[in-house]
């Protein structure tokens, strides 16, 4: 239940004589109680950005505010206290391998100076929340990836944080396990009202649980908005690329290297009318369906199609207009190879 404001955040790394700008004038407001996605390709600067939120990475320029507290103004001790209020989970889980499950979960409490008895009670309650009450004495090496991430979530929640940062928390997990972890995060958000920041390179993670999303490319936010908005009508190439995903390079789309491909998106309510069939009938021309997919975006079914339209430009424009009039979103797909 905390608001995060990032203002003009720039982070430069000095490495072997040259400077690398990992973040370039980033501005973001992450609403209290929301699940906020930050998506981008590998190396875009996502981890650097999320590590700036708890000041594990100090900005070169700009500021981070948590509920109007500028983190730059905190003393080292105050900063540590603030961090206890911000949970964090990671792709690699980062559990202590030499400590059993309950000792991992009580660690943040011991660091905060909580009594042993109280810490254990708290940890047990959290292990029930994440469904691992029977694994208290197990060591991490005995747990599956999903179970390890559950322990990490319990550990991150031990100090009753207002914010939970997730850096590629599901990237190392298979799709099913990943889904169950995302469901757990959503449940935690609903039940405790914690603000959750989700870093990922997978659009499916964003559409699954996020309310809003920012797209990071080369250290800059290139697009920001509600997940619905960005999924339906992405404005930047980066967004389009993330939505269609890398898998496209294996699809037959590769062979149609024309500028005639469009992406249409329709939601549940517009799915009644057989738009494609009607278009074919109306214009009396073949339309090639290159790819079709449905996705769950924030609990709403969204259909997505890639269509190969005729060469004739006038006809193409007319078809696009027609589809738009039917309430579907249409974007031209350029160099989708």
């Amino acid at each position: 239940m905390s608001e995060i404001k990032i203002r003009h955040l720039t982070k430069r790394f000095e490495a072997e004589g040259h400077t690398l700008t990992a973040l370039d004038d980033v501005n973001l407001t992450i609403g209290s109680g929301s699940i906020y996605g930050i998506i981008g390709m590998s190396g875009a600067g996502k981890s650097t950005l999320v590590r700036s939120i708890n000041y594990l990475e100090k900005p070169t320029e700009g500021s981070v505010f948590i509920d109007d507290t500028d983190l730059a103004e905190l003393s080292p001790k105050e900063l540590r206290k603030k961090r206890a209020n911000i949970g964090m989970i990671f792709q690699g889980f980062n559990l202590l391998e030499q400590k059993n499950v309950i000792d991992n979960v009580t660690l943040p409490l011991k660091i905060a100076g909580t009594s042993k008895k109280e810490a254990r009670e708290k940890a047990r309650a959290l292990l029930r929340t994440v469904g691992l009450e029977d694994k208290e004495r197990a060591y991490p090496s005995r747990l599956s990836g999903g179970q390890k991430q559950r322990v990490a979530i319990a550990r991150a929640l031990a100090t009753d944080p207002q914010i939970l940062l997730c850096d590629e928390a599901t990237s190392a997990l298979d799709p099913q396990t990943s889904k169950s972890i995302l469901d757990l995060l959503k449940e935690i958000n609903t039940r405790l009202g914690i603000t959750i920041v989700v870093i990922t390179h997978q659009m499916s993670v964003v559409t699954e649980i996020c309310d809003r999303v920012a797209i990071v490319e080369n250290g800059r936010i290139v697009e920001e908005g509600s997940v619905d908005e960005i999924f339906t009508s992405p404005k930047t190439d980066a967004a389009r690329e993330l939505i269609s995903g890398k898998k496209d390079s294996f699809s037959p789309v590769d062979r149609f290297d024309t500028g005639n491909v469009v992406r249409i998106v329709f939601s549940e309510n517009s799915a009644f009318e057989p738009v494609i069939a009607n278009t074919i009938l109306k214009f009396n021309t073949p339309i090639n369906i290159l790819k079709a997919d449905t996705r769950n975006v924030n609990g709403q079914a969204k259909g997505e199609m890639l269509l190969g339209l005729p060469e004739d430009e006038d006809l193409r424009i007319a078809i696009m207009e027609y589809i738009k009039e039917r309430g579907l979103s249409v974007t031209e797909v350029k160099d989708h190879a």
Partner: peptide
């Protein structure tokens, strides 16, 4: 593992706590 140390820092651990507890 640097990740475990990072996790401890994120919990708000001081360097002394990181040495002895991690």
């Amino acid at each position: 593992d640097a990740g475990v140390i990072e996790a401890a820092k994120a919990m708000g651990a001081s360097n002394i706590q990181i040495i002895f507890r991690v």
